[in-house]
Design a protein around this nucleic acid. Structure first.
Lengths: 126, 126
DNA sequence: CAATGAGTTCAATAAATGTTGAACTTGCGC
DNA sequence: GCGCAAGTTCAACATTTATTGAACTCATTG
């Protein structure tokens, strides 16, 4: 495990790329758990609406907390992070998720949208 | 909160019924989280295969642990528990879940089935 | 090179979930 | 009424997740 972490650090430094699980390594439990957190669903919804976007567009929590949530989404295989100069661009791995769990993202997104529509005040603060 | 707990105890004692969230109170986060745990997905798969079944049919963990998981599934609105004499019959609230989050249960179940097919040894021990 | 902004890492803490064994409650059969 | 089985509750503990502020890394600009 320590070896894996060191390995990832080396990859990051050399290739300016973060580690993402391969498509066939995306784990159902990790995805469901990642998406069970409201703020993460908001992030996913926003990314789907706008397409790839920089972390900057999210401000519903302190930076460090958002950083943690970004990492959980990425590690679960839900999002992809691309480093672009001083920014990190996030996107949802729509095709990978559809390939691994057909219909899951759509269902969660539809439910999350309905949820957001039901709580507009809460949503505007995000 | 204490009041709600007392209220639920009274309902249980009087009506031999456990509390279940109303359909419109089923919360997306609770459902996703409930289903993010592998053993709970197994329980759901088994119930869907066999229809309503007594708790007895599950033996993949100690009774108290299973009791905890049953409660999480029930509280999330995923399952319904009916008391029948000395047994507790569990069933999946398929229609409620479909009404609240169309396609979600199907997608999770399909993924869980694929998962189970990929790990048959792990599955036979359940 | 220094300053600044974007976002991360780290360690400590808080909160929540998961596990467990003892004690318990309930229903049933003898 | 007693004994037993089914499943729950409780409290303690283990594990994991979530939050936070300080320190950090990296890229850009003057």
């Amino acid at each position: 495990m320590l070896n894996l972490r060191a390995f990832r650090s080396i990859c990051s430094a050399m290739a300016k790329e973060l580690h993402h699980p391969d498509r066939d390594q995306i784990d159902l439990s990790a995805v469901l758990e990642a998406l069970s957190e409201p703020i993460r669903r908001e992030i996913v919804l926003r990314l789907l609406e706008q397409g790839e976007a920089p972390c900057q567009i999210f401000d519903g929590a302190p930076k460090t907390n958002l950083s943690y949530h970004y990492a959980r989404l990425r590690e679960a295989g839900v999002t992809r992070t691309r480093i672009a100069g001083p920014y990190r661009m996030l996107s949802v791995r729509v095709e990978d998720l559809a390939a691994r769990f057909p219909g899951l993202l759509e269902a969660v997104v539809a439910a999350a949208r309905a949820e957001a529509a039901k709580n507009p005040a809460e949503n505007q603060s995000a």
